[in-house]
Structures are given as C-alpha cells and as structure tokens.
C-alpha cells in the first residue's frame, strides 16, 4: 500500500460500547485488516469505548459472538499501543483491574510478555491526536 519505508501513524479511536451497536466489532476487524500493511498503529479507547475492554464477558445469553477474546490477539498483529482514557474509566466506576490484561510478546527479547494497555490523561490524548497521520473513528 505505502511507498517503501513510508510508515504512517494510524490511530483508531473507539468510543462506543460493545454489542449495542456494531462499531466495536467493525473497528476490530478494520484494525486486524489494516495490520497487514505494517503501519505504526495505536488504539485509543475513550467515552463508552472503555466498556469494550471489560474482562469476563459472557454473551451466551444474548446469542452474539463474544469478540472480547479477539482483543488478546492484537499483540500477535503487532498492535501493542492500546491507550485508555483513565478519566472515562473512573467516571464509569471502573479501574484498570476491571479490564482484560492485554499483552504482547517481544520477539527480540525471547518473547518476553509486555503490557499493551496504557492509561492516559486527557492532556496526553490531546497530544496523541496531534501526532497522527491518519485517524479512524468508531
């Protein structure tokens, strides 16, 4: 897709709760497809998007695919910068402990596991937006 060496910074912003609308799953699919292009990808979860990362989802009762398992695969796709708005979490009565523990394995350090999720302030989010070449909104 891109010229040789022209790596761009892609940010996917996720602001919707899962299941109530299709945005969360659509975003995941686009992220996974986009990962094939080996760009510098970050994900940002803010507003109701933080609900997407809650651990322990069980969708059997509503007959929908439980795609929360797929977030754990992001590390395999070299998507390992997952930013979460810490104020959005707090407003919703949630803490980092309520979220899935997402990790990636560093091939260059004998597959050492490293955390993917970084809690960020709103100032840091403002800076993150300014750094991007492309922003996708879901």
């Amino acid at each position: 897709m891109s010229e040789a060496g022209a790596t761009k910074k892609f940010l996917y912003i996720n602001r919707k709760a899962p299941y109530g609308t299709i945005y969360a799953w659509e975003s995941l699919e686009v992220v996974l497809i986009g990962a094939a292009f080996e760009q510098d990808v970050s994900l940002l979860f803010m507003d109701d998007g933080v609900y997407q990362l809650i651990k322990g989802m069980d969708t059997k009762g509503i007959g929908m695919k439980n795609f929360s398992a797929t977030y754990s695969a992001l590390g395999d796709y070299d998507v390992n910068k997952i930013y979460v708005d810490k104020d959005a979490l707090a407003e919703r009565g949630l803490t980092l402990e309520d979220l899935q523990h997402l990790v990636w394995e560093d091939e260059n350090e004998d597959w050492a596991e490293k955390d993917s999720i970084r809690l960020v302030s709103r100032d840091e989010i403002a800076g993150l937006l300014e750094e991007q070449d492309v922003i996708f909104n879901f």
Partner: peptide, 9 residues
C-alpha cells in the same frame, strides 16, 4: 442479567 453478563458487568 444476560445483557449485564454479556458486557462483563
């Protein structure tokens, strides 16, 4: 309950 369980809450 099923909607709460689906969302992990």
């Amino acid at each position: 309950g099923v909607d709460a369980a689906a969302r992990g809450v």
